[in-house]
Write a protein that binds this DNA or RNA. Structure first.
Length: 589
RNA sequence: GGGGGAAUGGUGUAAUUGGUAGCACGAGGGAUUCUGAUUCCCUUAGUUCGGGUUCAAGUCCCGGUUCCCCUACCA
């Protein structure tokens, strides 16, 4: 067999080449690599952001460089401190640690203002006093060139004066803007004299009322990167058209700069590279869609376990590791891929299968009574049964659970008239109760609606612990096809269990229907109030791992992976189903 | 009637930069199993199309097709 070779994606290869060539300094020095995650603090992070965070953090870590968390807080009208806090929390939870202090674009407003003045002085920017609509009309269209503003060639001193007064708050919103003087006939719309500053008379969450002008994204972003010494400014595909502008602004500042220049030395010029954003079937990454789901009450909030926000995944029980695995799995390319939601589910199954301690919980209980238990004596007898906490990992140890006359089993594990391939309980059939005894169904009762109310069985005392009975006279050992989970009724603890399904019924919500709300899955949430748990689950036990986020997670045997919800209290346990187990029986049906 | 990107099994990705198209997931089959889980084994199926260069093309050249993005005082 061939050795597994480490393959490097196109961004890694590009950085390798840059390092080798000495693009950022001394050739071979890997530690210069600096990346950043630049969220706008105007909402919650989603799984798509996780890909970007992990890419940037991963690169910095791999090369021994730096990773910055920088808030792009250039629009006071939309941004809030609360989002800053939630974003920091999410980034940390994902396992990405940023270098030094958290950074803010607003820390650089003064520097950006100075550079803007420099561009005006160099004749590369001007104040435009036209109303929005006029500017828009003059921009032209995709196929027609734009027309220059009448203010385009106004004297430098005039622009300088107006710009300063814009800054000082002398004008109302929309009165005028600062524009770069580039090319009104460019086939790239971004180059048709883009706006650099607009007037926004609003209170900023960090700078308060200091500023009355705020920089636009294209002007600000590259400068922020430059100031921080970012080498690789990574962003998504839709910014490819912006790269010429990103470069133009830095080049404009560097124009006529150099040793002995009155403007000063040249500033650092980062490299912008674009990769495709993450898209997942049966979801939508649109912030607008997500906000609508929350605002209109289709979900309980931004952290609803059905949401694809990082907070939603966390509450659902996903681990940081599972999201890291996903990011690794989908890779980095420029191809607009659609990742199957099934892959996301497989990642958390893979992680939790390795790590989650097992428990027995009956979600939809029916009573099972063992009629020959305590025959001729003690019907209340309880036997303690040892059961492994993890079948593949002995280090998890084992626990003892009670077994007695009255138990609960899963409603779907009994059928009155079972088909041949049904390996579970039915009249006259024998099954193993996991780590308990083998039982044979002798009778059952129904209510007037035909629902099974109770199942009666006899047990075989020779199968204690769930072990096979001894061989008969001919040396043959009796066999059972099915093993059921169960809970001892008298000691069972009640719990609420929330089962989640996909939020949307179609691969691309809103694509065909036109409205994503029409594609919502009406059965995406099912709340079970009377689940029966083995008593060991009520409080944390020593076999439970130390999850980095402190959230308790389990596999409920034969059911799936579950975590303790934040709504859970000692008096009322609440579990969320993170993912079901794969179920080849259900698939057969 | 403009500009910028991208196309490899069902899905997501590799291919030492011109030299055996590989990996993972899924799907199908089998083995093991005190979870119809896990684990293990086998099978399945691919270079967007048409030309060209070459001993040799996923890779280079020419032409076509399809998909995504771009006309916010948002980022």
């Amino acid at each position: 067999m061939t050795e597994p070779v480490e393959t490097r994606h196109f961004i890694q290869q590009m950085i390798d080449a840059d390092i080798e060539r000495g693009q950022w300094g001394q050739a071979g020095d890997r530690s210069v690599v600096t990346t950043r995650f630049p969220p706008e603090p105007n909402g919650f992070l989603h799984i798509g952001h996780a890909k970007a965070i992990l890419l940037n953090y991963g690169l910095a870590k791999e090369f021994g460089g730096k990773f910055n968390l920088r808030f792009d807080d250039t629009n006071p009208a939309k941004e809030e401190q609360a989002f800053v806090d939630s974003i920091k929390h999410d980034v940390q939870w994902l396992g990405a640690t940023w270098d030094g202090e958290v950074k803010f674009a607003s820390d650089y407003f003064e520097q950006m203002y100075d550079w803007a003045c420099e561009l005006i002085r160099k004749g590369l920017a001007y104040v435009d006093e036209q109303p929005v609509d006029d500017i828009r009309a003059q921009r032209g269209s995709l196929k027609e060139p734009g027309k220059p503003s009448p203010y385009r060639d106004r004297p430098i001193e005039e622009s300088l004066d107006l710009f300063e007064r814009m800054k000082n708050g002398e004008f109302p919103n929309g009165a005028m803007v600062l524009r770069a003087k580039i090319d009104m006939s460019s086939s790239n719309m971004n180059l048709r004299d883009p706006l650099m500053y607009r007037i926004v008379n609003a209170t900023h969450h960090r700078t308060g009322d200091t500023w009355h002008i705020y920089p636009m994204y294209d002007w600000a972003h590259g400068l922020e990167d430059s100031i921080e010494g970012v080498t690789n400014s990574l962003c998504t595909l839709e910014f490819e058209d912006h790269r010429p502008l990103y470069d133009w602004f830095i080049d404009a500042i560097n124009k006529d700069r150099g040793p002995d220049s009155p403007w000063g030395e040249k500033i650092h010029h980062p490299r912008q590279t674009e990769f495709s954003r993450l898209a997942i079937s049966y979801t939508n990454m649109s912030k607008r869609y997500m906000k609508q789901l929350v605002d209109e009450g289709h979900v309980s909030g931004w952290d609803d376990p059905r949401m694809i926000t990082i907070a939603g995944f966390r509450r659902r029980g996903y681990t940081p590791k599972s999201l890291q695995m996903l990011a690794e799995d989908v890779g980095i390319t420029k191809f607009n891929a659609l990742v199957d939601m099934g892959r996301v589910e497989n990642m958390i199954r893979e992680d939790l299968n390795d790590r989650a301690p097992r428990r027995m919980v009956v979600l939809d209980p029916i009573k099972l009574t063992i009629t020959n238990w305590g025959e001729g004596g003690d019907e209340d007898r309880v036997e303690m049964m040892a059961i492994p906490n993890h079948p593949q990992d002995e280090s998890y140890g084992q626990r003892e659970i009670p077994f007695g006359k009255e138990l609960y089993i899963e409603r779907e594990d009994f059928m009155e008239e079972p088909p041949k391939k049904f390996f579970r309980l039915g009249p006259g059939r024998e099954v193993r109760l996991r780590a308990g005894y083998w039982v044979t169904c002798t009778d059952y009762t129904k209510d007037s609606d035909g629902n099974i109310t109770e199942v009666f069985c006899t047990y075989d005392p020779q199968t204690k612990g769930g072990n096979n009975p001894p061989a008969d006279a001919e040396g043959k050992v009796r066999k059972v096809k099915g093993t059921l989970h169960w809970v001892h009724a008298p000691s069972a603890v009640d719990a609420e269990v929330r089962l989640f399904d996909r939020l949307y019924m179609v691969e691309r919500p809103g694509k065909k229907s036109g409205d994503h709300l029409d594609d919502l899955n009406p059965d995406s949430l099912q709340i079970i109030s009377g689940a029966k748990c083995e008593a060991t689950i009520a409080e944390r036990t020593s076999d439970e791992p130390d999850w980095v986020d402190g959230i308790r997670r389990f596999q409920f045997e034969r059911q799936g992976y579950f975590c303790v919800d934040q709504d859970s209290t000692p008096d009322k346990l609440v579990f969320n189903r993170t993912a079901s187990l794969r179920d080849s029986w259900a698939k057969q049906q």
